[in-house]
Design a protein around this nucleic acid. Structure first.
Length: 107
DNA sequence: TCCATGACATCAA
DNA sequence: ATTGATGCCATGG
């Protein structure tokens, strides 16, 4: 298996994602900041895209800054609704109400 | 090294 | 809401 990204980065990202509590969602940028890499938001998405290869993670609880769901991944909406995540419309969650507030992130 | 790509972020129209 | 520009950083050709 060719290394896609630094093993450490992958570990940090997946660990952070695993911390997202049920009923909450986090943004890519938020996860990036959580692991001390605010600039690497894009890598978060990249890793999540292969998260299934590393194990099972609640990657459906990660959305972009606008609260938009992953383009092309229909099942995500279903999964989030099962957890009671509030939606603004078909493709956007209501970040104001379900954004994960993490102390590590608040500092 | 240069260029393209990506489940992104932020700001300006 | 949508589009474009810019920033960011790792990976791959």
């Amino acid at each position: 298996m060719e290394c896609i990204l630094d093993e450490r980065l992958i570990y940090e990202i997946l660990s952070a994602v695993e911390e997202i509590p049920e009923g909450c969602v986090a943004t890519y940028g938020q996860i990036a900041q959580l692991i001390g890499r605010g600039k690497n938001a894009r890598h978060v998405g990249k890793v999540l895209g292969m998260s299934g290869f590393y194990g099972e993670y609640p990657c459906h609880r990660v959305v972009n800054h606008a609260g938009r769901l992953v383009p092309g991944w229909q099942e995500q909406r279903y999964l989030l609704q099962q957890e009671g995540i509030p939606f603004k419309d078909e493709f956007h969650v209501d970040l104001k109400r379900c954004r994960w507030i993490c102390e590590t992130n608040l500092d």
